[in-house]
Amino acid sequence: MIALDVMTVLLVCTGLVFFVAGTAGLLRFPDFHSRLHALTKADNLGLGFIALGVAFQMTDAWSVAKLALVWMLAGLAAASVAQLVARAALDRLPDESGGEHKG
């Protein structure tokens, strides 16, 4: 039991490090696309570590499979949203530099 708990604590803490790194990147990186990059990559990895850590607390394989599914879906959703945000930024950036933009 203790070994499982240790694994959980280690993995969840690793996941948290990635979340903190992603947030630091969001706050500190210079331009829009780097910030988006920091956020999406680091958070997906962080969520993966946390899911893996929680998996050590599960009693059956079914719950572990559900956790894996949650991670996969969250990853796909985050990737889609990142694409949408990046596209919105592409539309807006010329606007911010003074150019005329319609739409």
Binding site: L73, L76, A77, A79, S80, Q83, L84, R87
Partner: peptide
């Protein structure tokens, strides 16, 4: 593009 791929991949799920 990537977005079109997600647009085809995610709806069935």
């Amino acid at each position: 593009g990537v977005l079109s791929m997600f647009g085809r991949l995610l709806p069935p799920l």
